[in-house]
Design a protein around this nucleic acid. Sequence first.
DNA 1: GCCAACGTTGGC
DNA 2: GCCAACGTTGGC
Length: 135
Amino acid sequence: MNYWLVKSEPNVYAWEQFQTDKVAVWDGVRNYLARNNLRAMQKGDLVLFYHSNIGLEVVGIAKVKKTGFPDPASPDQWTAVELVPYKKLKHPVSLKKMKNCPELSNMGLIRQSRLSVSALTEDEFNKVLLLSQEN
DNA sequence: GCCAACGTTGGC
DNA sequence: GCCAACGTTGGC
């Protein structure tokens, strides 16, 4: 089991829309490191869903439904996956909160904020869930 | 292969 | 709206 974090701008594709859709093709990623992360995803992996630009918080957990397949727009080079909503967090976890948390200082989101798909350790994943229990 | 110029992302 | 960080491009 691996853990990941994906970013989405809520004015482009928000968690609420994702929940309505029940499934989302995660394509359009045009960064090699992010692509490698997409390719490393396994079915059933859990993925934190982060709202960038607006909100700046982790709002839910998604699950990998379909593993890396060719991005329809650029099948030779790029990769897409399919995600389904798994759980909405009880309380969103803000970037500020994560930045203030020493255990999360190595998190991909904080170290390299521009990376759209990053890997998380199990500890980091669990810590974010823990923070989402608090108000 | 280096590096300057430029574009994009995303937090503030 | 600004700017730092990062990736890409292209001239040399």
